[in-house]
Nucleic acid binder design. Structure first.
Lengths: 246, 246
DNA sequence: ACTGCCGGTGTACGCCGTACACATCAGTGC
DNA sequence: GCACTGATGTGTACGGCGTACACCGGCAGT
């Protein structure tokens, strides 16, 4: 029996999205808890102690309420995290629209990276492109900047996805390496190389990675993440420009 | 103060890396469990039911052993996941070295994407660049292909990171969208748009996303992920070529 | 035959997300 | 003024998770 439109017990959720609920006038402005306060507290925990420290119980404790209280505002932990991500995106500085498409995209990329670096847990939870009010502001800005250059809609999307894809992947590497560094308490790149040496040297001594080993000996600037990011970003932007004749 | 060899309670782990242990001759070939069998079983679970279904208990059940048995091979769940990821990278087809740097990098990117699409859970656990034997084979291949073009080591790394960053970020978007589709049982892009409509239309009706809304009306090819990926990839490669005069 | 060690077992603990019934309290219609 | 009602926060409890730790059986070297 195909799950035919059960007239009552339908298959899906209440179907009012988190974002829609959020913007409805708060029925009672007299409450101690708000979605905003919840998001804020959760983000604070994640920033300070990592995403794993964000627990419904811990969150409740920080807010001074019972563990289940937050469930009046989010349907579960997944929605809590969506809320946190949207909260962080809400702080993206999108103020100045810049002039050319390239400057706009570049600024967008740089700000996105800064956001991820300020809240490293976001790289584990965000997709480069997803649907929440503040996340949608990103493609909105990009599309507006790219309009009027003769690109059709699909190509515009491809350009957007290329840039944000690069940003996301690139910053994921960066954040992961940072976390590794911090976990072991290595301060600079030099210490990192020393700390990594034991595990690394075994692999290198297998002789299976000659080209990579050569890199390890020759590299000098590998501790400058800004340079790495911006160099890659400029490659991506240049590629887009030449590829689409912008 | 150099952390002087604390004679007893030293600060770090036993300090023999997973990979080193793995390659030491299996002391007793008579065992029912091996790291390989564990990785294989865990990957099978993740492929079939998602990463969340991979549980020490579930894994043990599938292997026909007690829940704690796997802990003789991995130090905890984190190492299990490292093992899984390395296992998957071990299946990357790195066979033919191709001729030019561009073809090599392009093939690498395409194969990496295929790998992530075949094991979607990897995008949540992998960083575009990390240290395990089979993961290291990727930069090794790339560095070998890029050698001899007059690029210094740092630039080579930047190129590598740019490409893998793009691949990782791009495929993360793709996998996430796929998961969303599958979760709701939407088969094609058309159904997806219909299913997404309720949640989407609220956001669109706010009037805050005019440029994005225009895209939604005009786009026609947005369901072709291959085209999107390869277009972006070609942009990235072209950008690298022009930027570094390759 | 004895012994030590390696691989698998069994039990148990603390923490997690969250379902569900209940208490409380603000604003409304009479 | 007051009972009513719905929204908001509480308390309790359950099942499942990762994993610490003590245990045991069987093979290896003597």
């Amino acid at each position: 029996m195909s799950t035919q439109q059960a007239p009552s017990g339908d298959s899906d959720k209440p179907q009012v999205s988190l974002w829609e609920r959020l913007e409805r006038p708060a029925p009672a402005p007299r409450t101690t808890l708000t979605a905003h306060r919840i998001a804020e507290a959760a983000v604070a925990i994640a920033d300070a102690e990592g995403l794993d420290a964000v627990t419904m119980r811990r969150l409740a404790a920080d807010l001074g309420v019972a563990p289940m209280a937050a469930y009046r505002y989010v349907s579960g932990k997944d929605e809590l995290i969506e809320l946190m991500v949207d909260f962080v995106y809400g702080q993206l500085p999108l103020g100045a629209p810049a002039e050319g498409w390239r400057d706009t995209m570049r600024a967008l990329a740089v700000h996105l990276r800064a956001m991820h670096l300020a809240h490293p847990w976001t790289v584990r939870t965000t997709t480069p492109f997803s649907l929440s009010p503040n996340q949608l502001a990103v493609p909105e800005r990009a599309f507006a900047a790219l309009a009027g250059h003769g690109l059709d809609a699909d190509t515009t999307m491809a350009v957007f996805r290329t840039v944000t894809g690069y940003v996301h992947g690139s910053v994921t590497t960066e954040v992961t390496l940072d976390a590794l560094r911090r976990k072991h308490g290595w301060s600079d790149g030099h210490q990192t190389r020393i700390g990594l040496a034991p595990q690394m040297s075994f692999l290198m001594n297998t002789g299976r990675y000659p080209a990579y080993q050569r890199y390890l000996h020759e590299a000098t600037r590998k501790d400058d993440p800004d340079w790495q990011f911006e160099t890659g970003l400029d490659c991506v932007l240049t590629g887009i420009a030449t590829h689409f004749g912008l």
